[in-house]
Amino acid sequence: MQINSLDQLIKIREGAMKKVNLRESGEDAESITELMVGMATCGIAAGAQEALDALLDEIEQQALENIRVVKVGCIGYCHSEPLVQVNMPGGEPIIYGNVDAERAKEIIQRHVMKKELLDNAILNKTFNKA
């Protein structure tokens, strides 16, 4: 498919926005939970792949539905890699740092399933964006 005009681009955008609104505002039409894993070179070097695999395993184990895992770029908090951001409908996104396989499981079992935030792992977003 080719995009031939601004109007067409904006129409396509409206479709795509449904998927990403959750990330910034916690508003969501689809009531899907989203897990974002920082997978730039730095994150992968710090073990983001293990965290990602553990998240996927645990989602399968717990047979969770309405959840998706997204690979994203560098979030900037290199000091606490690997990073996982949890976006759930109705709440502001939460960023977890130093996520190893163990903590990844905890994120699914406690945060996603019981809506319980994890102690000592939350990073605060320290930036605004254009």
């Binding site: 990403v20 990330r23 910034e24 974002m36 920082g38 730039a40 997204v70 690979k71 994203v72 770029g73 560098c74 979030i75 900037g76 990073l83 951001q85 977003k125 320290t126 930036f127 605004n128 964006k129 254009a130």
Partner: peptide, 17 residues
Amino acid sequence: KKQYRIALRNCGLIDPD
């Protein structure tokens, strides 16, 4: 917040693929 992201606005927010 001290930080303001323009160049990095989408980093860590979108799926680059």
